[in-house]
């Protein structure tokens, strides 16, 4: 059977749905969606998404693996929880969106230069250094994420706001040098490392059946 035919057969079949169930946080809820569309209607950013939640769920059922995982829709979720509150089937939609985003990132399918994805990475790395978010560095990292030139431009554009924040002591220039942190940074890092190991082990368990599916 040619690859083309195989792709056809997978439409409206369970293969991708099972993959999502196994690998995506709260993914086992996707099949319970009844396609009422209340989530899409409730999402304050819904009209800016390529695929609102209802559509994402249908795409998963329709077996559109590539389209779903490379989509930037789930990265657009602001965690306002409107959809969860309103879903008549009580699907944890926000969590599923984040779960899909995480899974897509793990597979390296995140769209290039997806700002939310980038911000999340910068935020995580920033926080991991000292166990506290260094707001000054976080802001600067964001300004310079697209290179030195745009970074300077962005910084100048925001300089008045920055000065005001300094005056109001909402931002300290001293943070640029080292900055504050938790008491036991190495303890925190050890803890996170352990959690990462546990998560990797959990994912590995799902990797195996998935591998056999591929073969």
């Amino acid at each position: 059977m040619s690859e083309l035919n195989k792709a056809m057969i997978e439409q409206y079949r369970n293969s991708f749905l099972s993959e999502v169930e196994a690998n995506v946080e709260e993914g086992e809820w996707v099949k319970m969606c009844m396609q009422c569309g209340v989530c899409s209607g409730s999402c304050p950013l819904g009209k800016h998404w390529a695929h609102p939640p209802q559509e994402i769920f249908m795409m998963i059922r329709a077996g559109k693996r590539e389209e779903v995982l490379t989509s930037d829709s789930m990265w657009m979720c602001t965690s306002c929880y409107n959809c969860i509150v309103r879903c008549p089937r009580q699907l944890p939609i926000t969590h599923i969106m984040h779960g899909l985003a995480t899974y897509a990132k793990k597979l390296g399918l995140t769209p290039k230069n997806q700002p939310t994805a980038k911000f999340a990475e910068i935020f995580w790395n920033n926080m991991m250094k000292k166990g506290r978010v260094n707001e000054l560095k976080l802001g600067l990292s964001l300004y310079f994420k697209d290179g030195f030139g745009p970074g300077i431009k962005e910084a100048l554009r925001n300089k008045d706001l920055g000065m005001k924040m300094m005056k109001a002591k909402r931002m300290a220039a001293g943070e640029f040098f080292g900055g504050h942190g938790v008491k036991d940074v190495s303890g925190l890092q050890k803890m996170i490392k352990k959690a990462q190991e546990l998560e990797d082990a959990r994912m590995k368990k799902f990797d195996e059946p998935e591998a056999s599916q591929d073969g």
């Binding site: 409206y12 079949r13 369970n14 749905l17 099949k31 319970m32 396609q35 249908m58 059922r61």
Partner: peptide, 12 residues
Amino acid sequence: YRSGQRNGVIFT
């Protein structure tokens, strides 16, 4: 209906 969904019946 939920029973069908729960057991993996695909509705489109």
